[in-house]
Amino acid sequence: MNEKKLKEAFMRAFDLSPDRDFEALGYRKIEAWTSVGHMRLISEIEEIFDVMLDTEEILDLSSFSKAKEILAHHEIDFQH
């Protein structure tokens, strides 16, 4: 459920299709993931999960798996 929501955040931020390999996404590895795109992604993630990330977390959020790791610290469960 939360993994699906996270994928939606990435899709909205970077205009991606659902069949994209999300685990392969990385900061500056795709054209849309610029610094501006990054802040768009952060907005989507914060809104979808209703959280506020720290600046350090924002800077650290450089991949799909890293996003899951950071959100887990905000009690967002990706195990089930």
Binding site: S43, E46, E47, M52, T55
Partner: peptide, 13 residues
């Protein structure tokens, strides 16, 4: 700057 960073994200919502 720190305050602007967080505030602007809340305001955008």
């Amino acid at each position: 700057i720190h305050s602007l960073q967080a505030a602007s994200r809340l305001m955008k919502r």
